[in-house]
């Protein structure tokens, strides 16, 4: 998450918001709403659920801002909250049928290496491709999905990812490894020439 203002830091805004400034609170929301929404969408793969998770996240932020210690970045704290809300939303759904990634051996298949007919540059306005991506990542168990998105998509460090996902560093690395291999295999099934 990027700080969009050079004038006032997050810490200053938090201090003002805790003192009761709604203007500072609104600025914090404005600064992070897009990132939180985008992350929630990438985890939930559904716009309504992403908006719901984003709203819940900022309601939690407003409620608990006084308890924010400042030991971690605000963005790390928000990622933690939104990840939890996404998990709760996933659990509340009647049906979720994730693929088990315990069998690591089967994830790497050196006999099935094919060229792909799409490159990432072709993604814009290609709904078929977006559906393929949604379907593939929806098969990942929640913790694997969160690790993949935080680490590879959002570009957070392994340490930050482990704090947010409440996993050890080796567990983050293992999940990232398996998530990459699994998603690559899923896309390979439909994107090959």
């Amino acid at each position: 998450m990027k700080d969009t203002s050079n004038k006032i830091t997050d810490e200053q805004l938090i201090a003002e918001a805790v003192e009761g400034s709604n203007k500072a609170l609104a600025e914090l929301v404005k600064r992070y709403e897009q990132t939180v929404y985008n992350f929630a969408f990438k985890v939930c793969r559904n716009k309504d659920r992403a908006e719901n998770a984003m709203q819940e996240t900022f309601m939690s932020m407003v409620k608990s801002l006084k308890q924010f210690s400042g030991k971690s970045k605000l963005s790390t704290w928000l990622y933690t909250i939104v990840s939890n809300h996404c998990l709760m939303l996933a659990r509340s759904q009647k049906k979720y049928d994730y693929t088990s990634l315990e069998n690591e051996d089967g994830l790497i298949n050196d006999k099935n290496i094919l060229d792909w007919k799409f490159s990432p540059e072709k993604l814009a306005d290609n709904e078929e491709l977006k559906n393929i991506l949604d379907e593939a990542i929806s098969k990942l168990p929640h913790d694997y999905r969160v690790v993949f998105i935080l680490r590879d998509v959002e570009g957070l460090s392994t340490q930050e990812t482990s704090e947010i996902a409440k996993l050890t560093v080796p567990a983050v690395k293992s999940r990232l490894h398996r998530a990459r291999a699994f998603l690559r295999n899923e896309l390979n099934k439909t994107l090959h020439v």
Binding site: W116, P120, L123, L129, L133, D152, V153, R180, R184, L187
Partner: peptide, 11 residues
């Protein structure tokens, strides 16, 4: 490419 596909898929 797998990583880039998901990076580029923003809403």
């Amino acid at each position: 490419s797998t990583v880039h596909f998901y990076k580029k898929y923003d809403v």
